[in-house]
Structures are given as structure tokens and as C-alpha cells.
Design a protein around this nucleic acid. Structure first.
Lengths: 153, 153
DNA sequence: ATAACTTGTTAGTTTACCTAACAAAATTAA
DNA sequence: TTAATTTTGTTAGGTAAACTAACAAGTTAT
């Protein structure tokens, strides 16, 4: 079962690496979903959407959909929900009347600053509880590597 | 926004670490799901289930549910589906008549050997295409760290 | 001018989970 | 030993978060 040794690892070839990575991603994702699904909280994708709007003053629905990797139709539904909650606002463009700028409302921004990181509490606690400082450092180092895997091409 | 510096990272505190990790996990999970959802393929959890049965000759539904982090009810449905496909078989225990041993059929084993790793093809290709050998090495090193985060307590 | 493309939306469907309710066997308590 | 409780597995029904289909309206290309 063990793949042939290569230069990049004494233990794993890419097949085993991907299988193990899939496995741990599935488990972590389930842990996260269980957290966020508690009591009318934001879903994973809603959380991502809010995060993008926090870092970018305004974005189009299409752009948000691409960033969060869902269809524009699904994004449209999320936006309607968040608009009803006064978390985001839709501002139709004057140059191109098809376009609708999406941005956080004042209420939304306040809510985000107060709550966004709190939503990650579970994972944060898991990290602090189970990992050593050295492991945290390693994790921080590998994040850009993981992000390379999901770059939009 | 930048947290105060700590010993384990020059750049990230646990809050930022967890936020970034959540983000990349969500994206990777979506990428994986898109792959596995193609053409009557196995879902993420079904894939996990098969993997566990590949490594353990027989397991109980309860054990499989715990390992894959879903309810026993959900596992029951997955098992029914896979039994209908002749991928797994149910063998009631003689000592304890409540228990049902789950194992891969001959057909299932063959199918798994042929296909399990292929299902990870997308991720494998992404890894090989976008990561350098050094990055692959780093990824292999961080896997046990990520697994620590999801250990069943 | 009209055809083709872009952008955003609503409507309806699917998937992968969940909770509720229950049956049957095993274990513990009385 | 009988009765209550716990364990194990299942079916039935519900839900959240995605999807595809269809379409309206604005923009660009021919």
C-alpha cells in the first residue's frame, strides 16, 4: 500500500497525501458545520460571504459567487436572506444597470466586528487546546500551501 | 486587525489561524464535493465509510457512524444503499443478536482497490500540479497536526 | 436592428444530512 | 424472576444548503 519513496516525503506519495487530506478535510468540515449550524447562525458559505465583504467594500453577486464557489443563483438566495436581515445592502449600478453592488450595512459591519471571529470559537478552542506552539507555527506555515490548492484558475 | 504577536507565529494568533483554516477547509471541501458528486459517484461520507471498511475487516454501524461523524440513522441509510449495490454486506452477530457486522463484499473490495484512489484524482492532480516538493513535504508534516484537531474525545 | 452575451433573479429539485419514533436484544435493578 | 433501562439498529419524515432550469432586462457585437 505504501507508495514508492520520492524526494518530497519519506512516507507519502501524492495519492496517499490526497487521500489523507480529503479525510481530514471532511472531518474538520463536519466539525465546523456542526458549530455554525447552531441556533440560526450563519452557514459556512454565509460566513465566507460576510468575510469577503468585510475585506472588499463592494462586490457583485457574480464575484461573491465565484469567491465562495457557489452558483450565482445560490448566492442570490443568500443575499436576499441577508438583505432581509439588514446585514448587507444592494446598490444597483448607474453605469451598467444590470450590475448590483453588494456591501455590508452599518448594522452588518458592527455585527461582523462583534461576531465574525466568535463564530470560529470552536476551531480556535480546538487549536489552543490540542496543539503545541510548534504545531500552531507549522499550521500557520502550511495555510498558504493549502490556499495554493484552491486558487481560482 | 492583526493580533498581538505570540511565540508560535510572527503573523497569526489563534483567532486568525482558525478563520483562515475554516476558509481554506470550506473551499477544499467544495472542490472535493464537486468532484465526487459527478455521475452517481460516492459522496464524501460514503468514501470515508468504504475507506474505514477497507482498513478494518468488519465494523458495526455504530462504529462506522462514530468514525465518519454522522448519526447512526444516517449511516443506516448509507449502508442500505451500498448493500443494495452489493458493495457491503451485513452479517448479524450470533453472540449479540442486536449487532450487525458490516464488511466489504468481494465485489466491493475489488471495486475499492480499483476506484478508491481514483476518486482522489482531482486533489492528487491539484497537489502535483500546484505544489513544489518542499510544499508537499510540509503538507505531509502538517497532516498529523490537523488530525489532532479532530480526534474523538 | 437584431442577435448574442452578461447579469441577476425566482422557482423547483436534489443531496446529504438531521430528529423522532420505534422494535428488539441485552443488561441492570428490584 | 420480573421489570426497568440501556444498547443497537432501523424506518419515516423533515430540513438546510446546495443544485439546474427558466427567464427578464441590460449591454455588446454584427
Amino acid at each position: 500500500m505504501l507508495g514508492k519513496l520520492t524526494s518530497y516525503s519519506t512516507y507519502m506519495d501524492s495519492a496517499e497525501l490526497s487521500s489523507s487530506l480529503r479525510s481530514v478535510i471532511a472531518a474538520l468540515h463536519k466539525g465546523l458545520r456542526k458549530q455554525t449550524s447552531a441556533a440560526g447562525a450563519y452557514s459556512m458559505t454565509e460566513l465566507e460571504t460576510i468575510g469577503h465583504l468585510f475585506r472588499n467594500p463592494t462586490l457583485l453577486p457574480t464575484e461573491l459567487a465565484a469567491l465562495t464557489r457557489i452558483t450565482t443563483q445560490s448566492m442570490s438566495q443568500i443575499l436576499s436572506k441577508m438583505e432581509a436581515q439588514r446585514v448587507i445592502k444592494r446598490t444597483p449600478s448607474k453605469e451598467d444597470k444590470r450590475k448590483v453592488g453588494i456591501s455590508l450595512t452599518a448594522v452588518g459591519k458592527k455585527l461582523v466586528e462583534k461576531n465574525l471571529y466568535e463564530k470560529d470559537e470552536w476551531l480556535k478552542n480546538e487549536i489552543e487546546r490540542t496543539l503545541t506552539d510548534k504545531e500552531k507555527e507549522l499550521l500557520a506555515k502550511v495555510l498558504p500551501v493549502l490556499n495554493k490548492l484552491i486558487e481560482i484558475k
